[in-house]
Structure formats: C-alpha cells, structure tokens
Simulated scan of single mutants.
Amino acid sequence: MLEQQLINALSLGSVYALFALGFTLVFGVLGVINLSHGAIFMLGSYAALLLVEKMALPLWLAMLAAMVATGLIGLIVDVLVLKPLRKRNAPHLIPMIATIGVAIMLTNLAQGLFGAENKRFPVGTIPEDSVTIGNLHVTAVQVGIVVIAFVLMIVLLAVMRRTQLGRALRAIAESPKAAYLLGINVEGLFYLTSFAAAALGGAAGVLVGLSFNAISPFMGQPMLHKGIAVIILGGMGDIRGAMIGGLFLGFAEVLTVAYISSDFRDAVAFGLLFLILLVKPSGMFGKVLERKA
C-alpha cells in the first residue's frame, strides 16, 4: 500500500535528515567533515538505553540526557582533536583522518563495554500504541520520530536564520578571521557548534534505536555513509539541503524495498543520488560557498 510506505519513508527520512543536520552544521561553521559523527550517533543510542535500564528514567528524559551526553562528547572531540589542528592551520584532510581515528576508538570502546551483539530497550519502554485507518497503520514511535525530528530541524533553522547567534555562526562560516575582527567569540562558537551537532547526532541515534529496537557498536558506520550522501546531495553546509536530502534518501530506500527488492535498496538510492549530482554537481541548493581567510 503506497500510503503505508510513504509513512514509513517519512519516518526513516526524518532520522536521516536529523543526522545530516549535525554533520552539515559542523562542516558549515568549522569547515570540517567530522567522520566521528557516526560513532557519536551510536553512543547516543547506548546512553539512552543505559539511562532507561540502569536509572529507570522515562524515555523522553533519557533522550534529553543522551543528547547532552553526546553533545559533551562532541565538545571533547573538538577540544582535544579539532582545536589543536585549527591552531596549526592543518589542511582539511588532516581533521578528516583524525576523526576517523576517533570513530574507530569510540566504536571499539563501545564494543568492549557492551559487546558486539544487538541490544534492545526493555519491554514496555517503547510505546506500542498505534492508529489504524483502513489499511494504513501508524505507530506512536513513527509519529514521535517525525515530530521530534521536525521540531529539532525547525528550531535549528530558525536559530540560524532569525537570531543574533545564527548571524554570528553564518559570519564565521563565511570568514572566521573577519568574524573575529568584528568581535565575535569565534572559538566559543566553534565549541557550541560541536556540542549542538553532536547532540543532534545523539538524538538521531536514539530515534533509530527506538525505530528498529536494535542497538550495536557498528550502527554508526552505515549512517555515516548516508549522512555524507545527504549533505552532498543537499549542498555542503546547507541546512535546508540536509533536511530535504535526508527525506529524499529515506523515500528512495523505502520505496525501493517495497516495490523492487531490498537487495537493491542502496543501489537505487545512491544511483538516483549520482544522477542528480550529474545534473547539479553542487547539490540541490546552489553552489558550495568557499570559506574566505
């Protein structure tokens, strides 16, 4: 049934978009592709799981705490890894390689602490309520995923477009040196960006964990590939592009599984991505802006 597949696609695409938002935020402001974002996404799922299991926190509070925890991890990565490289004016490739190392370390740490097998939320944690209209079946989890993802995306977009903080971040994205000369606390906003981006990644991790009720140390790597595809499709550093690109990828995957075969899910989705980039190499939202000195 097409309507059911569209609901499933909207739920999956919302998570992709939310994950990609944190990815594109770091690239837009710091000018870095943070390849540890997938591992931080994975840690968000585990943080929520531990808070629910060990501390019996309600799910909504566990998700907020997981966002704070992953935000702090992102901040630590910035302070210990990205900041020293910024001070040395390292080429763009160096932070990418460094964050690959961070991702491997975090993944191995999670595997050592929690094991390689899938973990699940305790029975009764995930709401089982649903609404059935004819052949259309919508679960409370799907509704929650879409609502939470869109609220976070709209809030971020509003902050970037309509607040003084957003204007300062856009100024840094254009030229960190010029922003510093204008009196903007560039380093402080770098920290804030790293925290916010990692928190969004953590939120996406919790939502994926709830959606599939399966959490593993290796769940971040496939999502990282999807996130890279989404931000390239939408236009590097463009928030609107990350939102629309994530939804596009989610719809492409779900409809491929439903009407072609699950074996061709990634082939069709990334094939469509390839075709779009042939027509518009800079992504859906115009040219990629080059950062000035």
Results as ranks from 00 to 15, higher is better:
Val186Ser: 03
Ser36Cys: 06
Asn213Met: 11
Gly134Val: 11
Gln5Asp: 12
Met55Ala: 15
Ala242Thr: 11
Gly115Lys: 03
Pro95Asn: 09
Ser282Gly: 07
Ala149Leu: 05
Leu106Ser: 00
Ile232Arg: 11
Leu59Met: 11
Val155Pro: 08
Leu192Ser: 13
Val254Tyr: 00
Met243Glu: 03
Ile184Cys: 10
Ala20Pro: 12
Leu182Arg: 08
Ala47Thr: 06
Ala140Glu: 09
Leu210Thr: 07
Lys83Arg: 15
Trp60Thr: 03
Ala179Tyr: 11
His225Arg: 10
Gly112Ser: 13
Arg265Val: 08
Val131His: 06
Leu169Val: 03
Ser194Val: 09
Gln111Ser: 13
Ala293Ser: 14
Ser261Met: 00
Lys119Asp: 05
Gly38Val: 06
Asn118Lys: 13
Pro91Gly: 12
Leu59Phe: 11
Leu233Glu: 01
Gly44Ser: 10
Phe195Leu: 11
Val146His: 01
Pro122Gly: 02
Gly283His: 14
Lys287Asn: 14
Asn185Glu: 10
Ser45Gln: 01
Val186Glu: 02
Lys87His: 14
Phe248Tyr: 08
Ile172Gly: 03
Lys54Thr: 14
Pro281Val: 15
Phe114His: 04
Asn135Cys: 00
Leu10Ile: 06
Gly144Pro: 02
Gly112Tyr: 06
Lys54Ala: 15
Leu61Cys: 06
Gly183Phe: 10
Gly245Met: 07
Glu187Phe: 05
Ala168Gln: 06
Ala98Gln: 07
Ile76Leu: 15
Asp263Arg: 08
Phe195Ile: 01
Thr256Val: 02
Val288Tyr: 08
Tyr259Ile: 12
Leu75Asp: 05
Leu233Tyr: 04
Asn185Met: 08
Lys54Ile: 00
Leu30Ser: 05
Ala214Asn: 14
Phe41Gln: 13
Gly124Glu: 02
Leu289Asp: 12
Gln221Trp: 11
Lys292Cys: 01
Glu53Lys: 15
Ser14Val: 01
Leu152Cys: 09
Ala158Glu: 14
Ser45Met: 07
Gly38Met: 10
Gln111Cys: 00
Leu233Thr: 02
Leu249Phe: 09
Glu290Leu: 11
Gly245Val: 05
Ala149Gly: 06
Phe19Ile: 14
Ile154Cys: 03
Val186Tyr: 07
Ser175Ile: 04
Leu49Gly: 03
Phe285Glu: 07
Ala204Gln: 01
Asp78Arg: 15
Met219Leu: 04
Val146Pro: 01
Ala69His: 11
Leu106Arg: 03
Leu51Asn: 04
Asn8Gly: 06
Gly74Arg: 11
Val288Asp: 04
Asn108Ala: 07
Ala214Ile: 04
Ala90Ser: 15
Arg88Pro: 13
Ala267Gly: 13
Ala173Ser: 09
Gly202Ser: 02
Phe27Tyr: 15
Ala179Cys: 13
Gly115Pro: 00
Glu174Ser: 12
Glu53Pro: 00
Met236Ser: 04
Ser194Pro: 02
His37Asn: 08
Val208Met: 03
Leu30Val: 12
Pro84Glu: 13
Ser11Val: 09
Leu249Lys: 09
Val143Asp: 07
Ala197Trp: 02
Glu187Gln: 14
Leu156Lys: 08
Ala17Gln: 02
Leu165Trp: 04
Leu12Lys: 04
Trp60Lys: 10
Arg120Asp: 08
Phe121Tyr: 14
Glu128His: 07
Gln4Ile: 13
Arg240Cys: 00
Ile104Asn: 13
Ala140Asp: 05
Ile97Gly: 08
Leu278Pro: 06
